[in-house]
């Protein structure tokens, strides 16, 4: 019996694996260790504005992930040809282009969603996370890690948004994704929805508590700004 031996072609040693340790870090670090909201303190403004209810928070997170990922990809592709003096304007053009495209496509194919999101989609342009990551990461990295970094930061942002929105919707309106979760019995016995929860300051408190909890659990973050 002849034993067939397959000879593997020697791998190009210089080429980095698609999910090398470094790339995995670009993707997963923003979820916790390097979270855009709680550690990098970016994107706080929209985290206060769109977390009153869970559904818009989720859709906002998806939209931002898309824009952050593809703007990072595009910027990383053309990073060497962008003139340094106008790099931020170029970044802004790319971001605005993507956001407008998303908006147009939603209007044409998912009209109901676009009606709900009209304000929020435009807000993505001014979201600090997108430009923050372009400046800090995509301008100096190859396209693939930059793309992963965009996705990671979008998801890291999304986690915080959804967590905050769950608390705000449940305690502020007694619902979750529009369904009633606090039974009528509570209301009959004098329970009232917390009016503060639907206002922006509640998000600030909740994010503060989240940061507290995150740092008490994750020792890497102690003494990180």
């Amino acid at each position: 019996m002849s034993v067939e031996t397959t000879v593997e072609a020697p791998k190009a040693t210089k080429k980095e694996a698609l999910f090398s340790k470094k790339n995995r870090r670009a993707l997963f670090d923003p979820l916790d260790d390097n979270n855009p909201i709680t550690v990098q303190v970016l994107g706080i403004c929209s985290a206060l504005a769109v977390t009153v209810q869970v559904k818009p928070a989720m859709i906002m997170a998806v939209g931002l992930t898309f824009v952050a990922a593809f703007s990072s990809l595009i910027i990383a592709l053309i990073r060497d040809s962008i003139p340094g003096r106008i790099r931020m304007i170029v970044q802004l053009i790319i971001v605005a282009l993507l956001v407008t495209l998303v908006d147009q496509v939603l209007k044409a194919y998912m009209f109901d969603v676009s009606k709900k999101l009209s304000v929020f989609v435009g807000l993505i342009i001014t979201n600090c996370i997108v430009m923050g990551r372009l400046e800090a990461f995509a301008m100096a990295q190859k396209p693939w890690p930059a793309f992963l970094d965009g996705i990671g930061n979008g998801l890291g942002y999304g986690i915080i948004l959804v967590v905050v929105a769950v608390f705000r919707e449940v305690f502020g309106a007694g619902t979750l994704l529009g369904f009633k979760v606090i039974p009528q019995w509570f209301y009959d016995h004098g329970y009232v929805n917390n009016g503060l929860m639907v206002l922006p300051p509640a998000a600030l408190f909740l994010i503060g508590i989240y940061i507290w909890w995150q740092r008490s659990r994750n020792t890497k973050l102690v003494n990180v700004s």
């Binding site: 040809s81 962008i82 003139p83 003096r85 106008i86 304007i89 170029v90 053009i93 790319i94 282009l97 407008t100 495209l101 147009q104 496509v105 209007k107 044409a108 194919y109 009209f111």
Partner: peptide
């Protein structure tokens, strides 16, 4: 180079946007 780059990227994005907007208009 800076001027040319700025002009080029403006024109490219403008064409892209105009094209999408026009082609999606009937649906919208």
């Amino acid at each position: 180079y800076t001027f040319l780059f700025a002009a080029a990227i403006s024109v490219i994005t403008a064409i892209l946007l105009a094209f999408t907007s026009e082609s999606l208009k009937p649906l919208q």
